[in-house]
């Protein structure tokens, strides 16, 4: 009798596992949606503070996962501030002082403009499959859409988050929700994606709420105002000279 019960459980487990697709394939498709050779994005960050809310508009250029350039357009206080990332280095230019300062070390973990994003979050553009081993651990329906729940564990050392949990749309292969964990297992950040739009062949979320779990408040909404994929970006954009232009 005992053997029969074990056999039934083993069968149920095997059949349910068999229904899950290969996590590597899912991640590959997510990377195809979320990353591109180049990206030009105009975005608005709504930072929900405890006392007041702020809106920061910026225009960003990215090429591969090593080069990016962001110029802040508004509000007035931020206008003209520029950030350049080359490889693992980040420079910030302040028009008020006409100084370019390179950030490194623990400063990269600081919040960008008081938002729930850190400089490291902003700089991270590598493909998930290059950084994590993934496995499917379940299914869930979010906003009427079926998702796979993936658990990602870092396979390289230099990642900001040791573990991630992602809810991937089973049809569109875009993340709908994500939880980011520290090595200790502490939940550090949560993101929720919405307003998915199809650009060419890819689906992309145009509204993302980042929530730093160590801070109070409603988090930061990152809203994509416009986005272009795989367009040619002039080389001078990704040079230190462009910071002062």
């Amino acid at each position: 009798m005992k053997k029969i019960i074990i056999a039934i459980f083993a069968f149920i487990l095997f059949t349910s596992m068999a229904n899950f697709p290969d996590a590597g394939e899912i991640i590959k498709k997510v990377d195809q949606n979320m990353t591109s050779k180049t990206q030009i994005i105009e975005s608005k960050m709504i930072i929900w503070g405890k006392r007041n809310n702020r809106e920061v508009v910026s225009k960003g250029y990215a090429e591969g996962n090593t080069k990016s350039f962001t110029e802040y357009l508004s509000p007035q206080r931020e206008r003209g501030t520029k950030m350049l990332k080359l490889e693992d280095k980040l420079w910030i230019y302040s028009p008020e002082t006409d100084r370019t300062i390179q950030l490194s070390g623990h400063m990269l973990r600081q919040s960008v403009m008081g938002s729930d994003l850190s400089y490291e979050d902003m700089m991270e553009n590598r493909k998930l499959m290059d950084m994590y081993n993934a496995k499917v651990i379940g299914e869930e329906t979010i906003d009427g859409r079926k998702t796979w729940i993936l658990e990602l564990n870092a396979k390289v050392d230099n990642v900001s988050y040791e573990k991630r949990k992602m809810w991937i749309d089973q049809e569109r292969y875009v993340p709908m929700k994500e939880e980011l964990y520290a090595k200790s297992g502490q939940l550090l950040k949560k993101t929720e994606m919405s307003n998915f739009k199809k650009t060419g062949t890819r689906w992309y979320p145009t509204s993302i709420n980042y929530k730093d779990m160590l801070k109070d408040g409603k988090g930061t909404d990152f809203i994509v105002l416009s986005i272009k994929f795989d367009e040619k970006i002039p080389d001078y954009i990704f040079s230190k000279a462009s910071l002062k232009k």
Partner: peptide
């Protein structure tokens, strides 16, 4: 010298 930090509202603060 240049100070870099955050304003009361979270904006970047630069001052020489």
């Amino acid at each position: 010298i240049t100070y870099m930090g955050s304003t009361m509202y979270g904006s970047l603060a630069f001052e020489s």
